[in-house]
């Protein structure tokens, strides 16, 4: 599948934003977060900025961005529509939390409920995003059961990385949170490795024989293509660069998205005075890693329509 940069930016940026927002909402209930005026405000605003930037960029690849509001209407059948509705819903409790903090400097009572609602909304939105892909039977790689799980884990992993960095920036050390971040990164890494293994072993049910229905006669080969130059289908669904370099790119993802951040966070325990620099390094390498991971998620996925074009 052709990886649109706007969609890669959307799913990674809003994924981190929703992960951060969900963690803020949940940690607020347990009163785990420091009541530092600027920290809480910046953390909330940063999560909403990441979400908003992502959502806006996802409209850039539309043919008619001015009609984007129409995408909120078909939530009964369409996961894309459900994602939009969930995203809009999540803004309400998140904004109430921000206002509550600015006006009353309060995080208790009703704001705890708002935090919980924002966390639920975040998880629902990320799940809906993953289901846009996971519900497409024509792209078998995305129908694997681990796809929604990975979207949720990557969202929490990237959100917790940002949160730990932010805490370090304010010289607030919460060891449990760094450990949590480390644990989520490690689990996500094994889930991603498992996904790749499942992908490699996935049987192909659709091929040129089932696509043409001519397999009962014999082996089917392409004799002549229906058009001389590449058409929309081949440009959109026939992306081939990644499959050729998949092995190398997977290794790069493992190193940049998981191994290096895990090492940097681990080192921050040993060298607490350099914790901020180390967490910044972790975020920087993970940003590269998650971008490649998402690019690969698209580019590696093969659409069954290509069966008509390849023997």
């Amino acid at each position: 599948m052709h990886p649109a940069y706007s969609v890669i930016f959307f799913t990674t940026a809003s994924g981190a934003g929703y992960g951060l927002l969900a963690l803020l909402g949940i940690l607020n209930i347990g009163n785990y977060l420091p009541h530092d005026k600027w920290f809480f405000l910046i953390a909330l605003v940063l999560s909403l900025s990441l979400i908003t930037a992502g959502l806006l960029s996802s409209t850039f690849h539309l043919g008619h961005p001015e009609r984007a509001w129409r995408a909120l209407t078909q939530w009964q059948t369409s996961w894309l529509s459900r994602e939009g509705v969930a995203a809009m819903f999540t803004y309400v409790p998140a904004c109430v939390m921000v206002l509550g903090w600015i006006i009353e400097e309060q995080t208790d009572g009703v704001y705890m409920v708002m935090g919980l609602l924002a966390a639920i909304g975040s998880f629902v939105t990320v799940y809906c995003t993953s289901m846009i892909y996971a519900s497409l039977k024509a792209i078998p790689a995305w129908t694997l059961s681990l796809v929604p799980v990975l979207y949720l884990f990557l969202s929490i992993a990237s959100g917790s990385l940002v949160l730990v960095t932010l805490l370090c920036a304010f010289s607030i050390e919460i060891l449990e949170l760094s450990k949590f971040c480390l644990l989520v990164l490690i689990i996500t890494m094994f889930l991603k490795i498992k996904y790749w293994k499942m992908l490699d072993l996935m049987p192909t049910n659709t091929n040129i024989e089932t696509a043409t229905g001519l397999g009962s006669i014999g082996k089917v080969n392409v004799l002549e293509k229906p058009h001389t130059s590449e058409n929309y289908l081949q440009q959109e669904m026939g992306y081939q660069i990644a499959r050729k370099h998949a092995e190398k790119l997977r290794k790069i993802v493992l190193i940049t998205l998981f191994i290096l951040p895990i090492i940097f966070i681990g080192l921050s325990f040993l060298f607490p005075t350099n914790a901020f620099l180390l967490t910044i390094a972790a975020v920087a390498t993970a940003t590269i890693g998650i971008s490649i991971e998402r690019w690969l998620f698209f580019a590696e996925a093969k659409h069954v329509v290509m069966s008509y074009y390849e023997s």
Binding site: H61, R67, L136, E236
Partner: peptide, 27 residues
């Protein structure tokens, strides 16, 4: 008149029946 040109329908079709018109911005 309602299409936003998100192309998702063309991804969902296993047969490649839909083609996007990039100059009109609709499927």
């Amino acid at each position: 008149d309602l299409c936003i040109g998100c192309k998702l329908c063309s991804w969902a079709c296993p047969y490649g029946a839909r083609e996007y018109d990039s100059s009109e911005g609709v499927m």
